[in-house]
Structure formats: C-alpha cells, structure tokens
Simulated assay, not measured.
Amino acid sequence: MQSYLTTIAAALGAAAIALVVVEVIHRVVRRLGRRSLLMTELTDHAHRSFQLAATVLAVQLAVRFSTGYAVGTGWRQVVLHTLVLALVAAVAWLVASLLVVIEDTALARFRVDVPNNRHARRVRTQVVLLRRLTIAMIVVLAVGVMLMTFPAVRGIGAGVLTSAGVVGVVAALAAQSLLGNVFAGLQLAFSDAVRLDDVVVVEGEWGRIEELTLSYVVVQIWDDRRLILPTSYFTSKPFQNWTRTEAAVLGTAEFDLDWSIPVQAMREELRRLVESTELWDGRVCVLQVTDATGGMIKVRALVSAADAGSLWDLRCLVREHLVGWVRDHRPTALPRLRTELGDASGTLPWQWVQPRRPVRRLADPEMPDDARVFGGSDDGDARSEAFVGPEEHAESRR
C-alpha cells in the first residue's frame, strides 16, 4: 500500500510540475512572439498537444523511478505500458500540430483575397492536400508503433511477412477505388488542373471549388447547393475551368429576331449599355448576326467581365435591356411567322416594300470594332492570333 501511495504521489507531483513548466513556457513564448506569426501559431495550435505530451512523459518517468522492479511487478508493467501508448499518441498529436503550424505560417504568405490570386490558390491547394496526407501518415505510423509494443504482435511478425504478398494483392483489389482517388487528388494538386476557388462547370452545373481532398471534391453551385464528386472524376472526364489562367471570361446573349431588325442600331445600343455599367471590364463588346434561317435571324451579343459572377449579371442585364429596346423601339423586328396577302404595293409595316433608295453597306475597312470578335481591337487581334496555325503565321510574316 505504501508503494502504491508513493507512486500515486510521485505521478501527481510530476504531472503538476509538467503543467506548470508548460504554462510558463507558453506564456513566455506568447509574450516574446507578439510580432511573430510563427510564435503566435505555436501558442495557438501546439499548446494543448505539448501540454499532454509533457504531462504523460513526466508521469511515466515518475512511475518508472518511484517503484522497484521487485515490488508490484504486474501492475507496474500494465501502468507503464499504458503510459507508453499514451505517450506515443501524444507525440503523434504534437508532431501533427507542429506540421499544421508550419503549413499555416507558409500559407500566410499567399493571400487569396486579392484579384490576382491564381498562384496563391495553387499553393494553398497543394499545401492543404499535403497536410491531409501527412496527418494520415502520422496516424498510421503512431498506430503501428503502438501495436509493436505488444509482444504478441511482434511474435506473429514472421507469419505476417510470409503472407504479405497474398494480403497485399487482396488489399490492393479491395482498395483500388480508394487508392485511385488518393492518387487522383495528388495529381490534381500538383498538375494545376484545378485549384481551390476555381470556377468550373461540371455535370451541367456552374460553381466554385469549395473543398478539395484526397478522395472527393466539393463544388459549391451558384445556388448554394453542394455537388460532391470523387477526385478521379476530374482526371477521367472533361470539365470546364473558367479561371484556369485568369478570372476574366466572355459570355453571350442570343436573340431570335425578324429580318427587319437594324443591326447597327442594336449594336450601338449594346455599346451604350455596357459603357454605362460597372459590370463590364472594357475588353469585349461585340454584336453579330450568327445565323439567318427559318425566317428569322440569330443575333448574338458577346461581352466580357472580370469574373464569372459579374459576367452572369452582365449577360442578364444585356438580355433584359435589349429585349425591352426591341419591344419599345423596333416592334416590327419582333420574331413572327408571317403570311402576307396582297401585292407588293402594300404600305403596312409588316409588308414588304421596295426601299426608297439603295442601302449603303459598310465596306470591310469601315466595319465597326463592336462587330468583330477576331480583330478590331487589341484583345480581338490577340484572340485572332491564338487561332492561326503555324503555317499561316509563317505566311503572314512573309
């Protein structure tokens, strides 16, 4: 009984001393590291794990040196073995906390709340995935070390090694899908195909990459739904990434109108509209007739915006405004199916009449800039160059 009381008192005293020492170190580090991000992260994330590891280590040393080998051998071995398991778990937690501190400190250098954040989002994606992988490895190693402390596990090691080949094949077949997703996640992180906060279109849904793990990807759809896909989806199926190189994108609004629509007047109205809204980034404003079949023409307005959200609002604004403009100012250009009765001398607006004078068509050099997608501006010229093959480049240089 005296041995038991001595051991308990020694353990409590060692735990109290460890807690006091850790608290003193914690306060000193916090005071010295007020201007250091690394010290602040250490005090915030590694304090509890360091406290637990130091306390378990102190209790183990107290139990080991306060009891003799001849006294209470059975319970002493059980207590010491339990403390070893607790120490392994606490050290694993401490190591994981230190890795998280280092990764958070590294991530603080890369801001994602700035307009040009493509590089920062790529680094953040890679670091987050590496964090998950390292924590998983630490947990596996800790569990392995804890199992190796049992003599029975070490005794059957030879038998496990002899059957490792068969077990490995079975495990590989059983975990084929899981391992495929893990490798797909690593491939996504380091191939830069998709990053956190990228705007993508998958399965017909438009959204933002909200979370990217080793096994699945969470896409936040524009209406706040969540689309959860395995990481292997992004390595095996095509998808659209609107922010692969930059956030600025182009969008269209199409209209089916009658042949009598004055295209140039509609083009000027589109230009006046986009120049009056902050949604337009000033790059592209083009209106073209893209089709003329079935008794109607298809007019397409092509505009640009700084990001996908602004583009959506800008397309809706263009569609709403031009629909109202056609209805109020050019009602005869509304789409209709006509049946004309009478002769060519009719004067009604929907009947064909011979023009009073020949309509002057703009020659190609006079084509306005907002009527050309591939040319007419610096952005249009750059877009035209991107679709010219190497032979055509060489001929143009000659």
Rank of each mutant, 00 (worst) to 15 (best):
Y4T: 13
Y4S: 15
T6W: 14
T7A: 14
A9C: 15
A16T: 14
L19S: 14
V21H: 11
G33W: 08
R35T: 07
S36K: 13
L42A: 03
D44E: 07
H45F: 09
H47N: 08
R48K: 12
R48M: 12
S49L: 00
F50R: 12
L52K: 08
A53D: 02
L57F: 08
A58D: 03
Y69A: 11
A70W: 11
A70F: 12
V71Q: 00
H81N: 05
V84L: 05
V88W: 05
W93L: 08
S97F: 01
V101P: 01
I102H: 04
D104C: 07
T105G: 12
P115L: 08
P115M: 10
H119I: 15
A120V: 06
R121L: 15
V123Y: 12
L129S: 00
L133V: 11
T134Y: 14
A136G: 15
V139A: 15
V139E: 10
V139D: 07
L141Y: 11
L147F: 02
G155Q: 03
G157Y: 02
G157E: 06
A158I: 10
A158T: 13
G159T: 06
V160G: 04
V166Q: 04
V167Y: 02
G180D: 10
V182M: 07
V182S: 09
V182R: 03
L186G: 09
L186D: 07
R195W: 10
D198E: 07
D198Y: 06
G204V: 03
E210P: 00
E211C: 10
S215Q: 11
V218F: 13
V219F: 01
V219L: 04
D223N: 14
P230N: 02
S232N: 08
Y233T: 08
F234V: 06
A253K: 00
D258H: 13
I261K: 06
P262C: 15
Q264H: 09
R267I: 00
L270E: 00
V274T: 00
T277K: 06
T277G: 13
E278D: 14
C285W: 01
L287G: 03
Q288N: 02
D291C: 02
I297D: 04
V299I: 01
L302N: 06
L311P: 10
R315M: 12
E320G: 10
G324M: 12
W325Q: 12
T332C: 05
L337C: 01
Q351I: 00
Q354G: 00
R360L: 08
D369I: 13
D369L: 07
R372V: 14
G380Y: 03
G380F: 04
D381Q: 05
R383S: 14
R383E: 13
E385W: 11
A386Y: 11
S396W: 13
